[in-house]
Design a protein around this nucleic acid. Structure first.
Length: 508
RNA sequence: GGGUGCGUAGCUCAGUGGUAGAGCAGGUGACUUUUAAUCACUUGGUCGGGGGUUCGAGUCCCUCCGCGCCUACCA
């Protein structure tokens, strides 16, 4: 580690402090109040008749120094903890002229301090800790990347000058981003509310939270390329999971009727504003339910998450558009595509027929695409971008849905739905295929269609078929990208904004 | 993968071929109720890396690295 002049300067301060017997990194501190609690204590004392200019309420606060204004015999600072910010007043007549001089020399923005004193009101009307003693509890060597901020006491509005907003620097040094940008901390508080709300909703419906392998000898449950890894002692090739699906459904065979998992999936594919190589999913499987039951529960889950974030209403704003997370449209996929393109794919049961219909409409496509891919293209190009308000599309073509149960009415259609908001796919669910013979046939079809070298080709999970052969109850299953829901509920256009440490290329 | 924009002090940015700048942060000093405190003085640079054109390159060209945006891919 090489230090800049500024850093060497601060290291010299550490030496200076130790020389006069002050430890800049003490082992233990004593905090009596978080800053919001101190403010509340002040208000309570004033309400109880205390003199506002000097309540006599004693408090010891800890936090980071965020501003220092030194006036010679008096200095004002702000410190910040998770409960907010409060001003400190340091006076030479209580702390000593020499002490204040040393404070000015050795304390910097970003240092953590412990300050004891009593709560009072300054001449300008700001609640302030009049400090009787203050010490360093952790010296910062690097300067925080933010300069100055003003907080309007009335509105709480914060104006930042030369804000730390370079995205690359913010993601690489997320700790500094969080330390300096309170709205970034709020994003992750909101995200945490989303996750706990989802967990609460499922728990309330008697779902059991479980954990299944991340390192898997055979990957499956989604169409994605996996990351590979290797177990040294076992000399075994392993994959990082691309979904939880096949393991969770094995649990239904084991008579666990309602299971869910919240965790990380890994997909070795391109990154974009809505794709990160690792991302957080929730999946649940629900015995004796079908995809319409799952739709109802999805609505409840998303509604609860929105209420947890917004605090009461389900109405949010995303990219300037008002979105009601409590109100869903339900449209059959064939109808949605027909409305937008004039093509009802159910009338074209083969690739050749559908391709001809698309050609007749001047729709460009790769002629090697299978029928399922063509339908997926129609969905992606003509329907998905327009699904701004929450919408379930249901009844999907069988070719792109190997784990979903066929419709009783049409063997080319499966009981599957996807949920869309703001033109973005949010979740995917089906009445799960539980017929082991059909399942094996579907896997074989995929293998023949794509072959094992193709990215789409997947190894057949024989054990999964074996499990299903013991009998799997009819069930509805569901998967949702939590990062995307967090994006929608925090009005962020990039998945990186809702990941604490998004994947970046190696720093050179 | 393709297109495009960006990369200059700790942070935010200016600088379109002629001596590398500003504000804030940092340093020295003044100042006993300030809040972007103020005032005076002041330190700080591999201009992302490498190569080229030129008398001369932060600036023009090539290349590499990183990031953003668009696009493509994505059961």
């Amino acid at each position: 580690m090489t230090y800049s002049e500024l850093e060497l300067n601060r290291i010299a301060k550490i030496d200076r402090m130790r020389e006069r017997g002050e430890e800049p990194y003490p082992h233990r501190v004593k905090r009596t109040h978080r800053i919001d609690a101190a403010r509340a204590a002040y208000e309570a004392a004033v309400e109880g008749g205390a003199e506002p200019n000097d309540t006599g309420v004693e408090a010891t606060l800890c936090g980071r120094l965020r501003s220092i204004r030194s006036m010679g015999r008096t200095a004002f600072c702000h410190i910040e903890d998770e409960g907010g910010r409060i001003q400190l007043m340091l006076r030479s007549n209580t702390l000593g002229k020499e002490w204040l001089k040393q404070f000015e020399k050795d304390y910097d923005l970003g240092d953590f301090v412990e300050a004891s004193g009593s709560l009072m009101l300054t001449r300008t009307g700001e609640i302030t800790l009049l400090v009787s003693s203050l010490r360093m509890i952790s010296k910062a060597i690097r300067a925080l990347p933010s300069a100055k901020e003003v907080v309007d006491e009335e509105t709480g509005e914060r104006t930042t000058y030369s804000a730390f907003d370079n995205p690359e620097a913010r993601y690489r040094e997320r700790y500094a981003d969080l330390a300096v940008n309170p709205e970034v901390r709020d994003i992750f508080r909101a995200r945490s509310k989303v996750v706990s709300s989802i967990r609460r909703t499922l728990d309330d419906h008697d779902f059991l939270e479980v954990e299944t392998p991340i390192l898997q000898p055979i990957y499956g449950g989604a169409a994605a390329r996996p990351f590979t890894t290797h177990h040294n002692q076992l000399k075994q090739e392993l994959y990082l999971r691309i979904s939880f699906e096949l393991y969770l459904k094995r649990l239904l065979v084991g008579n666990l009727e309602r299971v869910y998992e919240i965790g990380r999936d890994f997909r070795n594919e391109g990154v974009s504003y809505k794709h990160n190589p690792e991302f957080t999913q929730v999946e649940f499987y629900w015995a004796y339910a079908d995809y319409f039951d799952v739709m109802d529960l999805t609505e409840e889950m998303v509604r609860n998450a929105a209420m947890a974030v917004f605090g009461g209403t389900t109405i949010g704003e995303y990219e300037g558009k008002e979105i009601d997370f409590g109100k869903w449209e339900r449209v059959r996929l064939p109808d949605a595509i027909a409305d937008r393109t004039g093509i009802d794919f159910t009338k074209y049961p083969t690739q050749a027929e559908l391709a001809a219909a698309m050609k007749a409409k001047d729709i460009k496509f790769d002629p090697t695409m299978q029928r399922g891919k063509l339908i997926d293209k129609l969905l992606s190009d003509f329907v998905e971008p327009y699904l701004v308000q929450p919408t379930f599309l249901y009844d999907y073509p069988i070719e792109i849905s190997p784990l979903a149960k066929k419709s009783a009415d049409d063997p080319m259609i499966v009981e599957r739905f996807e949920g869309y908001i703001a033109g973005m796919e949010l979740c995917n669910a089906f009445t799960e295929l539980n017929d082991p013979i059909d399942q094996e046939a579907r896997f074989k079809y995929l293998q023949e269609m794509y072959g094992s070298e193709d990215d789409e080709g997947h190894p057949i999970d024989e054990d999964y078929i074996r499990a299903m052969s013991y009998g799997m109850p009819p069930n509805g299953g569901f998967g949702m990208g939590i990062d995307r829901l967090a994006m929608l509920l925090t009005n962020k256009h990039s998945i990186r904004e809702v990941l604490l440490f998004p994947h970046l290329r190696e720093e050179k």
